[in-house]
């Protein structure tokens, strides 16, 4: 017998069956648009996240309050290598790169080596009225693979490559590639920040499977 999970009953309990309604913390890793936003001790990190097959238009179910997560990878980083949590938690979000899928991101990061621990896609986030017995199942899809990023003391900007996650039918991560699109990134970097800062190639290095 098929069962629909979409029929939710209004019995008085309002649940944000969603990504932490209203309490997503800001990230310490900010997007940058010009060099004046780069303080001493910071470096511009340039890279791209891709997913293949790409998300279908209706695959993410996001309420109007959560549109900012459409086609966005939340790339969880840390300066220490550790096993990431099974679920996307508030704490992890404080060191995330917001990476629009398929586009280069430009963010500022402390000028020290760091690790990409895991990336996440918000697949199901909406506010809805449900029964008291409703069991919320987290609607975030993990993209597995840990990477080390080398940052040298004299770096002003680094290019980490395109991290391409291949997913299977179950949204499992089948394979991860790091692709070198340096020239394309360099051109975009130059048009955004000028020629005065060198973009050093420092491709993400896989460190272990997770």
């Amino acid at each position: 017998m098929k069962h629909s999970t979409n029929r939710l009953f209004s019995l008085g309990a309002i649940v944000a069956a969603a990504l932490m309604a209203g309490c997503v913390p800001p990230s310490a890793i900010k997007p940058v648009d010009n060099l004046s936003q780069i303080d001493n001790g910071k470096v511009i990190v340039v890279g791209k996240i891709e997913l293949t097959p790409e998300l279908e238009p209706d695959e993410q179910v996001l309420g109007s309050s959560y549109e900012e997560y459409r086609n966005l990878a939340l790339v969880i980083t840390d300066t220490e290598l550790r096993q990431p949590a099974d679920q996307l938690g508030i704490g992890a979000l404080t060191r995330r790169i917001n990476a629009p899928l398929g586009d280069n991101f430009f963010v500022s990061h402390e000028a020290q080596p760091f690790f990409i621990l895991r990336s996440w896609l918000v697949m199901n986030a909406e506010i809805k009225v449900v029964s008291p017995n409703y069991v919320h199942v987290p609607g975030n899809a993990p993209l597995l693979g840990m990477f080390g990023i080398d940052v040298q003391p004299d770096d002003r900007a680094i290019y980490i490559g395109t991290i391409r996650y291949h997913r299977d039918t179950f949204f499992g991560t089948e394979k991860v590639e790091v692709i070198d699109n340096y020239q394309q990134a360099k051109n975009e970097f130059a048009s955004k920040f000028g020629e005065q800062v060198q973009l050093r190639k420092s491709l993400a290095m896989p460190v272990m499977n997770n």
Partner: peptide, 12 residues
Amino acid sequence: YSFPTYGRNATA
């Protein structure tokens, strides 16, 4: 008892 919605589990 729930498995994660996204990703494989042993029963896939």
